[in-house]
């Protein structure tokens, strides 16, 4: 089924909050998945897979311990949402010296943050992991993925810097987001954790009922 991009963003934001991100990072996750959906990339599936993985281990939402040097996390694998937000916040670092990370999960989820940094810088930015090369700018995305590794669950390193040249036609944008039914159900499960159980008391008090509304 297709969804409006606003629906994709709203549901993903709630799901990310339900998965344990702070509100500010949950907002970032919503925007990131919306951006990926608008290029036909399955960001929602990646986010669900990331958290299914986390539920099975003790990993949480780790960003880099230090912004200088290679970005690593003592506690384990870098989270692409937290690390992506830090990457965008550190746009100048991308321009000045580039950023290299250690092990990072679902690197596709970091692409929207690089695009946001590119917009901030007014430059084209490249990301590289495994055989994948991505170029992004304000309104453009180029993907070079000869071995089909854009959706890999983990890479040992990822590099981000200014881009020197691009390749071919940019990816077309679309106005709707496609989400598989099982991914949609999983997002709803995460999101449901943010909804308070309804009680008769909350039904009456919480929305200010009690006066007739059938007149």
């Amino acid at each position: 089924m297709t969804y409006s991009l606003n629906e994709v963003e709203a549901l993903t934001k709630r799901a990310a909050r339900g998965a344990g991100y702070t509100w500010g990072l949950a907002e970032e996750a919503g925007k990131a998945v919306r951006w990926l959906s608008s290029y036909g990339l399955d960001g929602a599936g990646a986010l669900v897979a990331l958290h299914a993985r986390k539920n099975g281990s003790q990993e949480v939402d780790h960003g880099p311990d230090q912004l200088a040097g290679v970005w690593t996390s003592q506690s384990g694998v870098l989270c692409p949402i937290t690390t992506g937000a830090t990457l965008c916040d550190s746009a100048l670092r991308i321009a000045e010296e580039g950023v290299q990370t250690a092990q990072i999960a679902y690197p596709m989820l970091i692409v929207p943050f690089a695009a946001s940094a590119a917009t901030r810088l007014g430059e084209r930015v490249s990301l590289r992991w495994a055989s994948v090369r991505i170029d992004v700018e304000r309104d453009g995305l180029w993907i070079d993925d000869p071995k089909g590794e854009i959706g890999v669950p983990m890479v040992d390193t990822l590099q981000c810097g200014l881009s020197r040249g691009a390749t071919g036609a940019p990816q077309p944008r679309q106005s709707r987001g496609e989400i598989d039914a099982d991914v949609f159900a999983a997002l709803n499960q995460f999101a449901h954790r943010t909804y308070a159980p309804s009680t008769e008391e909350s039904r009456m008090r919480g929305a200010g009922a009690g006066v007739s509304d059938n007149d």
């Binding site: 943010t194 308070a196 159980p197 039904r203 919480g206």
Partner: peptide
């Protein structure tokens, strides 16, 4: 908060 009941926004 948001209630699970049709996601109605409420004040608690």
């Amino acid at each position: 908060y948001v209630s699970e009941e049709k996601l109605e926004p409420r004040l608690g």
